[in-house]
Write a protein that binds this DNA or RNA. Sequence first.
DNA 1: GAGTTTGAAACT
DNA 2: CAGTTTCAAACTC
Length: 506
Amino acid sequence: MSRLEEQNPKTQENGKLQLSETTANSPEKYADVGHPRTLDSNSDSADHTDFTADHTNFTVPGVIPHCSDGGWPGYGRAAGSSRMDFTNYQFVMQPHDAQPSLHQCQIASHGDVLLHQSSPLHFISPCLSFPNNSHFSSLGGHWSFKGPVHCSMYSGEIVDAGQSICPDTSDDNRPETNGQQQEALTELMPQNQMDISQSVMCIRNVRGEMVLMNNCSPGRVLQSHLPGHLDYIPEDTSYDISFKENLVQTSSLRKDSQSNQVPLSLLAIQPDQLTSSEPPGSGHMFNHIPRPFSLYQQYPKPVYSMRLVPEGQSTGVVSESQCDSKSKKPCNCTKSQCLKLYCDCFANGDVCSNCNCINCFNNTEHELERYKAIKFCIDRKPEAFRPKVGNKGCNCKRSACLKNYCECFEAKIMCSSTCKCVGCRNYKDSPERRNLLLHSPDKIATHEKEKCPLSCITLGVVEATCGCLLAQAEKAEKEDYTLVQAEKIILEEFGQCLTSIFESIC
DNA sequence: GAGTTTGAAACT
DNA sequence: CAGTTTCAAACTC
């Protein structure tokens, strides 16, 4: 339930609000903008890439322009919004017939995303080999959404392209369990969906960030033999190396990698806003394991995290601290082996770390068991790892929904019509709730945030808006729009989204 | 820290 | 789907 709903209750029944159906982030609201999202990678549209004569430098018009002022003429400046800061960014490529140089960078250790059949968005992403017969079968040449974008998509669901970085299958250093692991992973993947075990995905997390994730084995070294590899390496960290490495691959969505065309949809990527969950030099910077998503606590550690909102601006959904892995509460499981949803770590897609659990299998040492447990949960309940709060509602009977037993209260949201609670006092005008908050200043701080008018800009709204913008970007690409034309329709779309949001607020 | 309460998850 | 059991977190003392 959105804050708008909370502010516009129709009736109150049995201590529970009956709410208006008109919301800023309702699926219906954006249903008309759920354009089919198809990137026709096979199309031979105009070459958008501008190469210099020596083929050593190129910029990607419409994707990540190399702007002299460090800015970006596209997103971020729309409708008077604060400009997202972009640093100069330039890809450097070698001629295709040049001896490929070697990049080495560690990439994510495992799969990060579990797709399930019920997910509104499915990828179709065959892996294709590079023309140089490299063992990298990278870069699905074609990707598309199987259906229209569901602008009301759940948090953490995949909303954008996934591309593959396929590891060296002859890697002798692969852990012995990898075969089993791959098998388990394969079992996890429904048909017609991309092979997440060998993939890089671009997803949007609950904070409105675009997050690329890949799925390789721990410590695996990716040796890049890309025909168009990156020589330009920022000084800072290898994260950016990884990012660019993958961005180049991700950018090469065409079957014909010689075309060097880059989908306009990659407009969403903002390289200088990358964040990483682990510090440089950690030696295991991407050593994390597959994890589904949840609304609270920790999220899949991104290999590359690209914010869609300017740094420092919250989506109003989850605070930074909530997402900080360091803030993850340790579990105390004793009987579940931390492989059931009783375990908060497991339920949140986290591996146990610094927990007090006993006989824990939710760790990197028991990946196979963990994979199977995840599969089991998803098989039984496809939405098992989806955000629960706001989608399911609580079922409290004795706590009046005013204690942390109540998931809604714990999540600092009011109960909604989706809840099945009895004797609920967790609604807007509840005297008990008000009294409780008055006597708990710490709770006031968090609960009162809900009253912020901007709180209606929920994750759903952000996702819907981003979906609309991406749809326009893809449309522009498909129809061979010029950069100016593309920017125009995207900005117009953004304006319409803002108008819709504004109208919803008012 | 031990015991109790609570509600979600798991099971039947 | 409903009822029961299991489980771990929240809470109380």
